[in-house]
């Protein structure tokens, strides 16, 4: 869900949080009624000692520090290391832990795109998303349009992302309704045999790990 969904809490990533002076983007324009409620709640919670301003600032920094490059590193390693890939597909949570990425307590299921099957992730009920690997979900992932349509007309939706899938591929959609989180392991593009791990990582976009696009350099037939 929403994630509303669990970051696997504080035991995580703290070592990877880079500390720096960070100013969140300014809120544009006049404060709306709902924004005023956010500010008022935050002030009251601080006054009551339930949270402190520093914790909020640090948590925003933590949120900002997690980007899809984490997921991309996992994918690139799986492309290069067949044994790692096998472990990743068998137990995504444990394999990520090998790389220092602690996803607990939310288990990760990694689904592999093949020459027969293309996988796509959605949360039709809210916005469950592998936040510890990819950061916050993009607007479209949370949108009613995506959540409504990806199951009933995935090829049409993918075209809206500029992705023209091979019509021979079978499409499998994963609806994250409960406690699992999903990551798509895309197919490694052809003609990348000599690529370094960094070059491979560069090919792996956030959207291809959700399944709405293919990695850079991919050729659709």
């Amino acid at each position: 869900m929403t994630s509303e969904d669990n970051y696997s809490d504080n035991n995580v990533v703290s070592k990877q949080v880079h500390k720096h002076d960070h100013t969140p983007p300014a809120d544009q324009g006049p404060v709306t009624q709902v924004q005023a409620i956010q500010i008022a709640m935050q002030e009251l919670l601080i006054e009551k000692g339930l949270v402190c301003a520093e914790e909020i600032r640090e948590t925003v920094e933590l949120i900002d520090s997690i980007t899809p490059s984490r997921g991309a590193e996992v994918v690139a390693r799986a492309w290069l290391d067949p044994e790692f890939k096998s472990r990743l597909l068998h137990n995504g949570t444990a394999a990520c832990l090998e790389m220092g990425i602690d996803l607990r307590p939310t288990p990760l299921v990694v689904v592999e795109n093949t020459s027969l099957i293309h996988n796509i992730v959605v949360c039709t009920l809210c916005s469950c998303y592998p936040r510890m690997l990819l950061g916050l979900p993009p607007d479209w992932y949370k949108s009613t349009a995506y959540r409504s349509r990806i199951i009933i007309e995935p090829r049409v939706v993918l075209l809206e992302f500029g992705t023209n899938l091979n019509p021979e591929l079978s499409i499998r959609v994963h609806d994250s309704t409960a406690d699992m989180r999903y990551l798509v392991l895309p197919q490694r593009p052809n003609n990348t045999e000599n690529f370094s791990v960094n070059q491979l990582t560069e090919l792996v976009t956030r959207d291809c790990m959700i399944g709405v696009t293919l990695p850079k350099n991919s050729v659709t037939s």
Partner: peptide
């Protein structure tokens, strides 16, 4: 699941239950 739309729908849908 979606008989009336079967030409466009996903081939399979995995859901946690």
């Amino acid at each position: 699941l979606f008989k009336e739309l079967s030409s466009a729908v996903a081939d399979s849908i995995d859901v946690e239950v």
